[in-house]
């Protein structure tokens, strides 16, 4: 483990930038999001969850898949440097691994290479992920429900802890270790520095609200498809879709052609299962025409279908949806309701 003085962070980020484009929590408009930064001074260090989730770093809200014209198709060539992301909390780091399953893990497909998404892979596979310990979880955080925690180190390249006036850095993956070894200006961390991590971790965990045991969630929610519970839950939802847009794991998209005479481009853009149009078919039929069906879909996908397909819940407990929902449809209460529900 090495340490870098906060006052020397710019030098370290400059070093990272020689090889990578660095994305970090910064101000965008009146909100915070992970955006490409020019200098370390733009980074906001003390926010827990950015308003917008980091999925947009690798899965932008709109992305050109190809351009077409009379002379055929042209796939955009990525000219930028690979991506490094600084300041991800563990919930967000794990959300990227979930999206990676969607875009890269074709384990259920007959031809494993057929369904790998080149646009995602090119960015994510070559990235450098800095996973920063979360010193002050919020009251809306529930990562611990899913067996994760604010100081988890998994799924990243380099683990970072913000301690007093330094950042402690530990290489986790081979890539991360090799990268850190190249930065010669870092000092070795002392035993005292490392001891502080234990104290910070204990303090962070004490901030987490009461844990709900969700070991039965997958099976239980799977039995509720036809139950009236969905009417009760969806009653107040106004289908605004804000939850799906700020969610770090929601990844449904639409494909749209924007063309002028003779040429155009095909664009992939975020969509939301909360919208009626999402499932409206060309015939006019809509299998999820009413709100209740759409709300059920969203939560079944998160806590049942995804688990079925990939062995993990499609939710990290980051709490962004809890914060933005205009009608306070709190997903933690929904989970408790599902677990307590008596099947008729």
């Amino acid at each position: 483990m090495v340490k870098i003085k906060k006052t020397r962070l710019k030098d370290f980020i400059d070093f990272v930038q020689q090889e990578y484009d660095v994305f970090a929590p910064t101000e965008v408009g009146k909100k915070t999001a992970f955006k490409k930064i020019d200098s370390a001074f733009e980074i906001i260090h003390d926010i827990v969850n950015t308003d917008r989730s980091p999925k947009e770093v690798f899965f932008p809200q709109s992305e050109v898949l190809f351009e077409y014209g009379k002379d055929g198709l042209k796939t955009p060539e990525r000219k930028e440097k690979p991506i490094a992301v600084w300041g991800l909390r563990h919930c967000d780091t794990s959300s990227l691994t979930m999206l990676n399953k969607v875009f890269s893990d074709a384990h259920q497909m007959p031809d494993k290479d057929m369904f790998k998404d080149p646009y995602w892979k090119e960015k994510y596979d070559n990235s450098l992920i800095f996973n920063q310990a979360c010193n002050t979880p919020l009251s809306t955080c529930f990562c611990h429900w899913f067996g994760r925690g604010p100081f988890d180190k998994t799924s990243s390249d380099i683990f970072v802890v913000d301690v007093d006036d330094v950042f402690l850095l530990e290489g986790i993956s081979e890539k991360g270790k090799a990268f850190l070894a190249k930065y010669e200006k870092a000092e070795q961390a002392t035993k005292e520095d490392e001891a502080k991590i234990t104290e910070l971790k204990r303090k962070a965990e004490s901030f987490l609200a009461e844990k709900t045991d969700i070991s039965e969630l997958f099976e239980k929610i799977g039995k509720l498809w036809d139950e009236p519970i969905w009417e009760e839950i969806s009653g107040k939802c106004v289908n605004c879709g804000a939850c799906t847009f700020v969610c770090s794991t929601c990844h449904c998209f639409d494909v749209s052609d924007e063309g002028k005479k003779g040429k155009g481009k095909r664009i992939r853009l975020w969509d939301s299962c909360m919208f009626q149009l999402f499932t409206k078919e060309a015939s006019g039929h809509n299998p999820r025409g009413i709100s209740t069906q759409r709300v059920r879909q969203r939560f079944m996908h998160k806590y049942n279908y995804f688990m079925d397909n990939y062995g993990v819940h499609l939710c990290t407990g980051c709490g962004r949806c809890v914060q933005v929902c205009p009608v306070n449809l709190d997903v933690r209460e929904l989970i408790k309701k599902v677990l307590d529900y008596k099947i008729s």
Partner: peptide, 12 residues
Amino acid sequence: SKCIRCYACRNV
């Protein structure tokens, strides 16, 4: 230019 076109404004 900051709009993300989630249509939450319209939907509420």
